[in-house]
């Protein structure tokens, strides 16, 4: 089997509900080694839940999730932790430990999971920070950095252990267009050079078409379209077309001014 066609993550009929509300509805999906797989969809469509299901933070109500051929459902904590050493995760709000400096944040996974000497770990931490353009900020605390800088440090932490898979939750949200484009370039670069499998959650259509190898559109917990950026761009699905064009009129259920007026009439 071609390495590029090796399935890294596979979801089989995954269903997840919260308080009786269906969040992911019977999702089946294969993500291949080295590809950048982008999941797009409206707010509340279940994108972040899908990411958390894949990284084992939450368990589905039914269905199976295979990571590198191993089913993580019902896996023991030790086995899951062992698998997680090959993950990296970039959180939407960075989730850096604010009591540690930038360098200590990068050193944390290295100290926990390797037996390298302190000097080597320091070199690796500085190298990863340079890779994301954050060299020279080693001794800053996360609170002293801007949102964009924190995201880049989070990315440096995510690649500290040279993971095979990186999950990105809204990597460019809240960033200015230039830093956003630089982050996109970095994700693409990591995938091309290090053959990292990347799963990216985003609303940003520019990012989608710039970095994705394949794109999935999630709507109301359902995977309504999966394809290459070109296929998605030329999709005949009305939901996908409305989402790409960013039009307020269409089948995607948004609170229209009329509905808001009805709400106010009911309340007052």
């Amino acid at each position: 089997m071609n390495e590029k066609n090796q399935v890294m993550i596979s979801l089989k009929n995954v269903v997840k509900t919260f308080d009786g509300r269906l969040i992911t509805d019977d999702i089946s999906l294969d993500i291949y080694r080295g590809e950048i797989f982008v999941v797009m969809g409206c707010s509340g469509s279940g994108k972040s839940t899908l990411l958390r299901l894949m990284n084992g933070s939450i368990q589905p109500d039914s269905g199976d999730i295979y990571i590198k051929g191993k089913n993580i459902i019902g896996m023991s904590q030790n086995e899951l932790d062992e698998l997680r050493k090959s993950f990296g995760m970039c959180f939407q709000y960075s989730a850096l430990l604010d009591s540690l400096t930038v360098e200590e944040n990068i050193l944390l996974p290295l100290k926990e999971h390797t037996n390298m000497s302190q000097d080597i770990m320091n070199i690796i931490a500085r190298m990863k920070l340079s890779l994301v353009g954050m060299g020279g900020f080693e001794n800053y605390f996360p609170a002293e950095l801007s949102g964009g800088m924190r995201k880049r440090v989070a990315l440096a932490r995510a690649i500290a252990l040279d993971p095979e898979i990186i999950f990105y939750d809204e990597p460019t949200s809240g960033l200015d267009p230039v830093v956003g484009a630089a982050t996109d370039a970095l994700i693409k670069d990591l995938s091309d050079k290090l053959k990292i499998t990347s799963i990216v959650i985003t609303h940003n259509m520019q990012s989608v078409f710039k970095i994705a190898d394949r794109v999935a559109m999630l709507y109301d917990g359902k995977l309504i379209e999966v394809g290459t950026p070109e296929e998605i761009r030329n999709s005949s699905n009305e939901y996908v077309r409305q989402f790409i064009s960013g039009d307020s009129q269409g089948p995607i259920n948004t609170a229209s001014p009329g509905t808001q007026m009805d709400f106010f009439k009911k309340v007052f």
């Binding site: 990284n55 084992g56 933070s57 899951l80 932790d81 062992e82 997680r84 050493k85 993950f87 995760m89 959180f91 939407q92 709000y93 989730a95 850096l96 430990l97 604010d98 944390l108 996974p109 926990e112 999971h113 932490r157």
Partner: peptide, 14 residues
């Protein structure tokens, strides 16, 4: 609430 605990769990740190 700022996902730092979840970040630890994803990094396989108990």
């Amino acid at each position: 609430v700022s996902e730092q605990i979840e970040a630890l769990e994803v990094m396989a740190i108990n």
